[in-house]
Design a protein around this nucleic acid. Structure first.
Lengths: 190, 190
DNA sequence: GTCTATAGGGGGATAGAC
DNA sequence: GTCTATCCCCCTATAGAC
């Protein structure tokens, strides 16, 4: 039993991990209440519906990303280090119980999730792409990165391959994921 | 009611489409029986369990791919046309109700599907990668393709990005998917 | 090969006591 | 803020009639 004002946060933390692990349709209130040592109804007290819970988790997730990229620690990095930082987010997901990109997971379930979740998914994906595009553009102008086509298209390719590689790693192991990351780094610098 | 010896095939066709659309955990026997105009129990007569049905669908799916790539129509194509053919498989999925790569879908659900399905997923992914690697290698040796690193790594990157791009297209539309394909073609030929 | 009927479990959600 | 108790729906799967 976690009778504390932090129960709400604990629920969100667990829901976030479960979303990474099993997807929206794959986890239940029972998973959360059991892990927290409370009852089903207690979770419903904090979040009336599963949809509401998931939206709150995704909103926080997006806010966190926004905070990171606007922080000087990331913002003032040179382009290549900036991209390394982004790759590290994915590397860490892989290392953390084989987590998978939330955008990819929700897009896969796109046809069976509530509208509000679809909106969150779309917004989240756009935010990643915009940041990536800007970083690639900055690197190209600085003469650090080299690639064909628009920065927007290259951003889409990189993001798509990272989310695909995290999934692939579940079936074939971490080496496949690392290979994809290394391939990108090499491609950009040549 | 489809009282015919082809009910079994009809069930598999529907299950395959549903797998593409909603994933393994996202579809039910009711979806199939309703669409076929039969009852739940009739589907269970042909496939005792959902797992058995999914395995049969994936086995057929893999066999079909094997037939295709071993057919002279594909086998004797020049490397760039061979890759175009592969890209077309994915383009067609996108055009067909926004279908998503089965490998990516099953990998996303990897932590909540039966063992037999995990094996199928792993085998299917390996088969795609092996074929892609060989095609890339052939193209490089023929002087048609140019890329850094090993053909195996490049194959992983391409497959991962295609499955990620199909997912991304559900949230952001077909243009994003097309951008990824075009980017690959351009990259390989330069 | 398909039907009716039903078992048995899990899911999300709510009412009202404490 | 958490509990007990319960509702109602959907799911997979089975038994036995036709």
């Amino acid at each position: 039993m976690v009778r504390s004002p932090n129960t709400k946060r604990a629920i969100m933390d667990l829901a976030e991990a479960l979303l990474h692990d099993k997807g929206y349709n794959g986890f239940s209130y029972a998973d959360i209440s059991a892990e927290l040592g409370v009852k089903n109804a207690a979770v419903h007290y904090h979040f009336r519906t599963k949809e509401e819970l998931a939206v709150a988790v995704l909103q926080r997730y997006r806010d966190r990303f926004k905070l990171w990229v606007n922080n000087a620690r990331v913002k003032d990095l040179p382009p290549d280090k900036k991209l390394d930082w982004f790759f590290h987010i994915y590397t860490n997901m892989r290392a953390d119980n084989g987590k998978v990109c939330l955008a990819g997971s929700l897009e896969t379930e796109f046809n069976s999730i509530p509208d509000a979740l679809r909106s969150q998914t779309e917004a989240m994906t756009r935010e990643y792409l915009e940041w990536l595009e800007a970083a690639l553009q900055e690197g190209r102008e600085a003469g650090v990165f080299h690639f064909n086509g628009s920065a927007a298209d290259k951003a889409a390719l990189i993001l798509a391959s990272l989310q695909g590689a995290l999934q692939m790693a579940r079936a074939l192991g971490t080496k496949k994921f690392n290979a994809v990351v290394q391939q990108h780094k090499q491609d950009l610098l040549v």
